[in-house]
Design a protein around this nucleic acid. Structure first.
Length: 438
DNA sequence: TCTGGGGTCCTAGGACCC
DNA sequence: TCTGGGGTCCTAGGACCC
C-alpha cells in the first residue's frame, strides 16, 4: 500500500504527551531527538490577495468563489465576512443571505499561484525541508537546521516577519514536535499569531479542543462521535483503538494516535502527482448530449494542457458525471500505452461518458475528466508517429492560447462538436456551452 | 443552506490466477 | 465434480482536505 495518509504508528520516535498508548510507546533505550516542526498558514489567502490587488476592499467583507447568483461555494472569505457567519465551503447564495453587503469576487487562480510561489521561496531560505501542503499552507522541519540558528523561536519569528513584509500577507504559525500538533498550534495562533506548543504541555492543550479540530474528522465522523456524546479531543481518549478502528477503519487508528498527539509522519516530498482533473458545474443542468460532449472536449483540452505543462502521461482516464439529484458516478479505463493527447483521450472519454449516461438520461449538473496513474515519460517502445503529430498540435495550441486566451482558437473537433466561446470584457474568452442560460 | 474545483487515501467486490 | 484459499489487479464509490 502507499504511504499512509496520516500518521504511521511510529514505534520509536515521537515525543508525545502524557497519555501515550501502550502500542505507541517509544523505546526507552534510544529516544531520538525531539523534532522541530513548524506549520505556516496564510490567513484568508485568496481574500487577502484580493485586498492587496484592490486596496479599496480593505476592511470589507470579501467573499471569493463566484458571484452570489451562481452555483458554487465560497472558497475563502475575509475575517470581516466571517463575522457575519460566512465560512469557506458555504454556498454563495447562503453567503449573500448572511452578508448582503459582501463583496463577491470570482478570483484569479494564476495570481494566487504567483503569491504562493513567492511564499514558498521565502520559506525555503530557512530550511530545505519544506512540504507544500496546499497553496497557502506549509510544514517546515527545522530539526536538521537547529545548529544554524541560535534560537529556533527567533528564526521562526524572523521567517514570519519576512513573509509578511515581502508578500503583504499575514500568516499564522504553529510550532511543535510533529505535524498534527503543529497544525493544531496554528489553529490556536489564528489569525496572524504564533503559538509554540511547549514540551509537556501537549495533554492539557489537546484535552479541551473540539473534536472537529482533529484532521481527518469530517462531517460524517462528527455525526457518529456526537451520537456517542463525544465533544472534545479529551473525550476521545476514552475509546479504545479497536473501537475507533471498527467505527472508521484505518482512519480510526489515525484518530486514536493523533488525538494523543502521536504523529510519526515525515514531511511529504514533492513528487509526481497522482492525478490531474478538470470539471465544470453548469449554471443550469444540461441534458443535450452534443453540448455535454462538446464540453468534455473542452475539458480534455484543458487536461492535456496541464499534462504537457507538467510533462506527464496518463495510464487511466476517468469521466465523472453528477446528476441533477446530486448523485455522482464515474467510469474509468486503464490504457496500455500512456496518453496525453486530446485526440487519443477524447474518444475514450466519449465512450466512457456514453456508457455512464446511457442508462438514466437524467440532466447533468457536472461533468469532469481525470487523468490518473501518471508517469513522467512515455515508454520508448510505444512511440507512434500519429502520437507525435498530436503532441505537436497540442503544443502549438498551447502557445496560441497562452497568448490570446483559451477560447481564441478551436480545434476541428471542438468546432464539429459545437463548442462555442464568447468574449466578455472582464473575463476574456468564455465557454458558452457552460453558461447557456445567461 | 440546493451543495466548487482540485486533490489524496481507503474500502469493497469481482475477475483471474495458481 | 458441487467445490479451497490466497494474492493481485481493476473498478466504483466515498470520506476528507484546502
Amino acid at each position: 500500500m502507499g504511504t499512509p495518509r496520516r500518521s504511521a504508528p511510529c514505534p520509536a520516535g515521537e515525543s508525545a504527551p502524557g497519555k501515550i498508548p501502550e502500542d505507541a510507546r517509544p523505546s526507552r533505550l534510544r529516544l531520538p531527538p525531539r523534532r522541530a516542526i513548524v506549520h505556516v498558514d496564510i490567513d484568508a489567502f485568496f481574500a487577502s490577495v484580493e485586498v492587496l490587488l484592490d486596496p479599496t476592499l480593505k476592511g470589507k467583507p470579501v467573499i471569493v468563489g463566484g458571484l452570489p447568483h451562481e452555483r458554487g461555494v465560497a472558497s475563502t472569505c475575509s475575517y470581516e465576512a466571517r463575522t457575519y457567519g460566512v465560512r469557506s465551503g458555504m454556498p454563495l447564495r447562503r453567503c449573500r443571505q448572511l452578508c448582503p453587503g459582501g463583496v463577491f469576487v470570482r478570483g484569479n487562480h494564476r495570481v494566487y499561484q504567483a503569491f504562493s510561489e513567492k511564499f514558498f521561496r521565502i520559506l525555503r531560505d530557512y530550511t530545505p525541508d519544506v512540504e507544500e501542503a496546499s497553496l497557502d499552507e506549509a510544514y517546515l522541519d527545522l530539526t536538521r537546521c537547529r545548529r544554524l540558528y541560535p534560537s529556533l523561536g527567533a528564526a521562526v519569528r524572523d521567517m514570519k516577519v519576512r513573509v509578511e513584509r515581502e508578500t503583504g500577507l499575514t500568516v499564522s504559525v504553529g510550532a511543535a514536535s510533529n505535524k498534527v500538533l503543529a497544525k493544531l498550534a496554528t489553529r490556536k495562533a489564528k489569525p496572524g499569531g504564533l503559538f509554540e506548543l511547549a514540551p509537556g504541555a501537549e495533554e492539557e492543550f489537546l484535552r479541551g479542543l473540539p473534536i472537529d479540530a482533529l484532521p481527518g474528522i469530517g462531517p460524517k465522523a462528527q455525526v457518529v462521535l456526537r451520537l456517542l456524546n463525544l465533544r472534545t479531543i479529551g473525550d476521545l481518549w476514552g475509546l479504545s483503538r479497536a473501537t475507533l478502528h471498527s467505527l472508521f477503519g484505518a482512519g480510526g487508528d489515525e484518530i486514536y494516535l493523533q488525538s494523543r498527539g502521536v504523529d510519526g509522519r515525515a514531511l511529504a516530498a514533492a513528487g509526481v502527482p497522482k492525478s490531474v482533473s478538470r470539471e465544470t458545474t453548469f449554471l443550469e443542468d444540461l441534458w443535450d448530449e452534443r453540448l455535454l460532449l462538446a464540453h468534455l472536449a473542452y475539458l480534455c483540452d484543458r487536461l492535456t494542457l496541464a499534462l504537457r505543462r507538467e510533462g506527464l502521461y496518463a495510464h487511466v482516464i476517468e469521466v465523472k458525471a453528477r446528476y441533477a439529484d446530486f448523485r455522482t458516478e464515474a467510469r474509468r479505463r486503464l490504457v496500455l500505452s500512456p496518453l496525453r493527447e486530446t485526440g487519443r483521450i477524447f474518444p475514450i472519454v466519449r465512450d466512457l461518458f456514453r456508457e455512464l449516461w446511457s442508462g438514466s438520461r437524467l440532466a447533468l449538473r457536472l461533468v469532469g475528466v481525470k487523468a490518473a496513474d501518471l508517469a513522467r515519460s512515455r515508454p520508448l517502445s510505444l512511440f507512434e508517429p500519429s502520437a507525435e503529430r498530436e503532441e505537436r498540435l497540442g503544443r502549438a495550441l498551447d502557445e496560441v492560447r497562452a497568448k490570446y486566451g483559451f477560447g481564441s482558437v478551436l480545434t476541428v473537433r471542438e468546432r464539429m462538436l459545437g463548442v462555442l466561446y464568447g468574449f466578455e470584457a472582464d473575463r476574456g474568452f468564455v465557454l458558452k456551452t457552460a453558461s447557456l442560460t445567461k
